[in-house]
Design a protein around this nucleic acid. Structure first.
Lengths: 158, 158
DNA sequence: TCTCTAGAGTTGATACGTCAACTCTTCCCT
DNA sequence: AGGGAAGAGTTGACGTATCAACTCTAGAGA
């Protein structure tokens, strides 16, 4: 059980700073992606993942795994993207269920044009502003954090 | 104009790692806050800000300023919190408009109990896992990022 | 006084994300 | 074969976030 005391002003400031930095960065990237390519960050993630898959198609569960998203999030996102004509759900196995997620031509085009531009934006807003020490610190911290909160799932009861 | 090339695998990995770490951290904090205190991160932010204000009341625009949220976000949030009985909108000036945002007794209680607990969680999940070098790197990077994307608007240059 | 405009705040539409509940299929056990 | 659990995927409800459009008030200027 952790001790419960309020944060020192300096601690609070660091936390607040970090949260804000995070938010302005992701928000700005999302804004620019929308403005320049007409797609959202969520759509971009799905488009990229699908366009890298062999045959440009995957199952929902594979998409969940690759994106580290939950299945309902993926499903809702696919519904929205199906409505926009970026992906299509078609039958896969014998059961007649629509379990194959494919990229449409429109989706593929959108992915291709956005990938370069978004890479440039990630560079410009994130990577280029990082000193080597900062990059190392962020990498180490991120790894810790992911391990700490999301232990490589496999039954590690704690 | 930035050069447009795709990210090196290592660059992409850092970006992906950072995004995931961010997400698991904020998600976990939100989850725990909800579980232990029955309020969301957004509600927490508003409650804390209001409970620190003199008289425990503010105008919407002051709330916007303090939280660095946009006004419609604040307004929608206040509507939800008004429905939950955490805040109340009452008349302030002569015009009869409901421009004063006050904390209810319920809201104050919720804030008090959550503040300690959430501070502990921020400590446990974020601050405690930071080495001094990481803390310094994160602070410096955050400041850069905020300056870069959100230049201190308000005329007082310097 | 009348109008114009700027600012404060609200609202509706829409997208995103989570939880819980649901359907459908498969496959194991008897 | 019949029953039931497990897994895949969907759906509905709800909270959250953004944008654009709207209302209302106050204040400036004719």
């Amino acid at each position: 059980m952790a001790e419960t005391r309020t944060l020192e002003p300096e601690e609070w400031e660091l936390w607040d700073l970090w949260m804000r930095a995070q938010r302005v960065l992701t928000q700005e990237l999302d804004r620019v992606l929308r403005r320049d390519f007409g797609i959202s960050k969520a759509e971009f993630s799905v488009l990229v993942t699908l366009s890298r898959a062999p045959g440009r198609e995957m199952r929902v569960s594979e998409l969940c795994e690759s994106l580290a998203w939950e299945k309902s999030r993926v499903s809702h996102q696919l519904t929205r993207m199906e409505n926009r004509g970026f992906v299509e759900r078609t039958q896969c196995g014998a059961g007649g269920r629509r379990t194959r997620i494919g990229l449409t031509a429109t989706g593929h085009r959108a992915a291709q044009s956005a990938i370069l531009g978004h890479a440039g934006n990630i560079r410009r807003y994130f990577l280029d502003s990082l000193t080597p020490e900062q990059a190392a610190a962020i990498r180490a911290w991120s790894e810790q954090m992911i391990d700490q909160v999301e232990p490589p799932h496999g039954g590690s009861d704690g």
